[in-house]
Amino acid sequence: MKKVLTACLLFVSSLTFAQQTVQRSAKLPNSDITETFSVLRSDKKIKQGEYTATAGNNTTLAQGTYLNGERAGIWSFYNISGKLIQTYNYTDNQLTFADSTDTKGLQYVMAGVKTDDDVTVPVKIGGSYSFRPTFLSKVLTQAINKDFGPVANATFIHTFSLNSKGEVTNHQVKVCINGQNKLYQVDDSELDHDLTRFAPAMVNNNPIPCKVITTNTVAMSNGNLPDYANSTYLGQ
């Protein structure tokens, strides 16, 4: 009888929760990623409940839960092949698992580090999933097309400056095309804060500011630099 009562209560709770929310689906900026989530009926700016991010090839890239508009509990993140690359506990603000292969090619600049220091490099929360929207905004795309015109491929060197909390304070990208280089300032303020967060760099268990550098080469499909969703990343 107790089990039946518990099941009934869970059913009523889930039904009530479903009645309080509305499901939404939207494209993540500057990417081919589709987000599926629910928002409160009373305030459709507040996410509530399960969240899933899916790539254009239908691979799940992120799964987790929102509570009153904030990420809560353990979230799982996957690469484009569907391999689990990271888990993060948003309730405890703790990185619980990170696959080192997902950080291949990243470079780090930390001032004042000594050879005998205990160093922990910063980790992008969300892994490669959350890196993607920061790579190629429409404003940057338009500026590059205007400055360089038709091109076959391009190399992007992104430099993220982080404070001791792991927050991005500055984002610059050096674009290299046909032997020419140009530096652009990137504004990531339109992106969700959770998409630009890092677990901070640590030296002797103390968080410090640092820089993270990533290099990507993009092949163009039609001579002009396309949006990220229509480009092919050849390497990181």
Rank of each mutant, 00 (worst) to 15 (best):
M1R: 07
M1S: 11
M1Q: 05
M1E: 01
T6S: 04
L9S: 12
F11Q: 13
F11Y: 11
T16M: 15
T16Q: 14
Q20S: 06
T21F: 12
S25R: 10
L28D: 02
P29F: 02
D32L: 01
V39D: 04
L40Y: 07
K45W: 13
I46H: 10
Q48K: 14
Q48R: 10
T52P: 04
A53R: 08
A53V: 12
A53H: 05
A55G: 11
N57E: 01
N57R: 00
T59Y: 06
A62M: 05
R71P: 02
G73P: 07
N79Y: 03
I80G: 03
L84E: 00
T87S: 02
Y88N: 04
T91R: 08
T91Y: 03
Q94L: 09
L95D: 04
L95P: 05
T96K: 08
A98Y: 00
D99H: 03
D102Y: 06
L106V: 14
Y108P: 08
D118M: 15
V121G: 00
G126D: 01
Y129V: 03
P133L: 10
D147N: 02
V151W: 08
A154H: 08
F156L: 04
T159L: 12
S164L: 06
K165L: 13
K165W: 05
Y184L: 10
S189A: 12
E190R: 14
H193V: 15
N204M: 07
I208R: 03
I208V: 15
I208G: 09
I208E: 05
V212P: 12
I213Y: 07
T214N: 13
T217S: 03
T217Q: 12
D227C: 09
A229P: 07
N230A: 13
Q236E: 14
